[in-house]
Amino acid sequence: MKARVLVALLVMLVAVFASAEKFPSKPITYVICFAPGGESDITARLQQPYLEKILGVPIVITYKEGGGGAVGWTELVTRAKPDGYTIYGTNLPHIILQPLQGGVGYKTEQINNIYFFQSTPCVLAVSVDSPIKTFQDFVEYVKKKGMVTLGGSGQPSANSFATVRLAKLTGLKITYVPFSGSGTAVPALLGGHVDGLMTYTTMAIQYKDKMRVIAVATEERISLFPDVPTFKELGIDLVEKAYRGIAVPPGTPEDVKRVLEAAFKEVNNNPEFVAKMLEMGFVIENYDEAASAKLVSELVPYYKQLWEETQGK
């Protein structure tokens, strides 16, 4: 009898140790800091089945929207448990721009990014019914009309900075009209309330029968729009995109971070997943923890400068 109890205790002890050693052993909560249905949510939903297969535990997607993501990210750095069982979607340049603007409860450097897995480059688009066919037409149109309005998602955001930078580099008079999301700006374009959109590749793909992309803000042309020139080709030094990834609360153990990093990397190498993402207009990125940190540290001074330039405008 005594022996049996002892054995049972031993088994339990081993089980406890085994579970303590092995991460993960219970469901992981994947927090999206935006409303359901957006780019971050769609990516997470696509990753979910693959992550579950790789990690062997359920992935529970929840939403913590508010303040353009700031509510979730504040919680990430202040209250979330650093055990790897709660991970948060993060977005660049949001996590740089919000602290710059101030009033939010987190700092850029507090966010421990583990992996940036996709990005959406900015594109300049007009309605298919628009007389504007090329970027040259666009320039002439602005000159003729005196000024032009471009809608986009949020402010400050990749869209708003791309617009402000475009205006500055070309000397054209462009007014940026911020909407609450990339999707809500679309009806404003289709209804003719704005002249064009500074939006993301994903939107241009989703509405490809209604929008005409006239320039893309990437280094090189993108396969989705092989006939559309980059701003660089047009002589405008404008490269702007939004990155999306995941972060863990500060103080999460190294080994746990490695497991998560490897899992997201593996998902990104799955051809089925990649095909689905590309089809929707996402660009696959592979920035692991170290590379993510480097990316953020490079982007911080860039956005700081842009921020200062655009203040008081």
């Binding site: 929207e65 509510v71 603007q101 009033g103 939010v104 911020p178």
Partner: peptide, 18 residues
């Protein structure tokens, strides 16, 4: 909703989301 400025939160993080 437009401009992204944070208002009337009295530095309470809970209120950022409104």
């Amino acid at each position: 909703p437009v401009g992204g400025n944070v208002r009337f939160t009295f530095n309470i993080p809970h209120l950022i989301g409104g």
